[in-house]
Design a protein around this nucleic acid. Structure first.
Lengths: 231, 231
DNA sequence: TTTATAAAAATGTGATCACGTTTTGATTGA
DNA sequence: TCAATCAAAACGTGATCACATTTTTATAAA
């Protein structure tokens, strides 16, 4: 079997968690933190060897991820991390904006003061991650922040779609971070927290839009070309 | 093994199509046409027996569908068709409107006259389906119409999400059709076709929004309660 | 050095089996 | 008639194997 050069995070696996679910989460984590670059092939047997399982649970995890468009099934049935293009990137970002703004409007009525406190804790952890230049930790915390806020709405249709977008953007961020000097931007989460506290929808949407734009807005066409086709 | 009372469509299976893909499509078709009611349990072995395959490809098809939120995995790991609620329904419909309006705006620049002709053919077939009161055929054709129009945009991020919504709305329509007198509405597709021909974005979005609303707008809270909790 | 060819390795897929858990249905007792 | 009990049936999960196809590697020819 061909050895895959691929690093997977060691996540906890409670006894009642299926092997398939565990495999899914490890791959999910690796994808959203940009630990797997676009174009990298992921084989069932290769992953099974890394995770010390049989191919069966890996196969199911890969099916779930390709079903969410986080992975692409090629004509020959092999699975790869999809390549990013400039137009795909902009489509993903536009969609992310729209979906998160839609979701936050429906989440706001369900935001409690206790929830805001929890969000503050995540934001504090993010400040530390910035100081430690822990970009992967920061990514995870940032998504935790957004997820917790948007999930206040008990009706969860939008959240899985937003997660699908994150999954698709993740691998590109891998290559992007290497080409960008300032990965860390001004903290829009503080503005979001204030808007949440004031139950001010307009400010909230503005801050959220800015947060999303900050994370990806710097990638104009010129920067994209450099990242996608480095000399 | 317990016999599932469940009708699956007989779809073509080309030689190069995997059994798993075939199983997926048959279930997909059954779900979007409302052939499987909410709450119905779907077991791996039961489906495998119906489809004359081993459990393996069915398992993968179910994973894909639950990954798209078309099916729900319960705590005991069993899979069921999710139950509809009034709030979930309205969330789904709002999201569908937003996503399709987003998608059509990005599709319009890529619409060719040839494509419009193809859409007209689908619309003609829909007219026949209405006359024959073939509600399932009408559903399939309607989705074909929307899919072909929105897929004009070569960058396909939104379409899988819209399909996910259709998958979630499908099973409810099963119960809904039985409680509704006039399933067939005025044909908004004619207006859509005109707007497409004129490359008139504003009219196009208006017609599309009306089309979506017509299909589901009649389900106010009162009607929902009747459908969800029939005496 | 490059190209063509054949053998070997790798891969996805589907079937089958064993295991532990959950559900079901009949039987017993109140 | 209803509730409790318990054995049987059903179920999801993960491992293993066989098979066909694709990819890679080694070898030979130009």
């Amino acid at each position: 079997m061909k050895r895959l050069k691929l690093e997977l995070p060691d996540l906890d696996k409670p006894d009642n968690m299926t092997t398939q679910e565990h495999a899914y989460r490890r791959l999910h984590h690796a994808l959203i933190t940009g630990s797997i670059a676009p174009g990298v092939p992921v084989t069932i047997r290769g992953l099974a060897e890394i995770m010390h399982t049989s191919p069966t649970p890996v196969r199911e995890a890969l099916r779930r991820l390709s079903s969410k468009n986080a992975l692409t099934v090629l004509e020959n049935r092999r699975v790869v991390v999809p390549q990013m293009t400039s137009s795909r990137f902009h489509e993903l970002v536009s969609l992310r904006s729209m979906l998160e703004l839609f979701a936050v409007e429906r989440a706001l009525p369900h935001i409690s003061d206790a929830l805001i406190e929890e969000l503050k804790l995540i934001d504090d952890a993010m400040d530390i991650a910035v100081i430690e230049r822990d970009s992967k930790g920061l990514t995870i915390l940032n998504q935790k922040f957004h997820t917790k806020m948007l999930s206040a709405n008990p009706e969860q249709i939008t959240m899985p779609m937003i997660e699908s977008i994150w999954l698709q953007l993740g691998p590109f961020m891998h290559s992007a971070i290497a080409h960008v000097e300032t990965f860390y931007t001004i903290d829009r989460h503080k503005q979001i927290l204030i808007a949440l506290h004031n139950r001010d929808l307009a400010s909230l949407k503005q801050a959220l839009a800015a947060d999303i734009h900050d994370a990806v807005g710097r990638f104009d066409d010129q920067a994209m070309q450099k990242i996608l086709h480095p000399k």
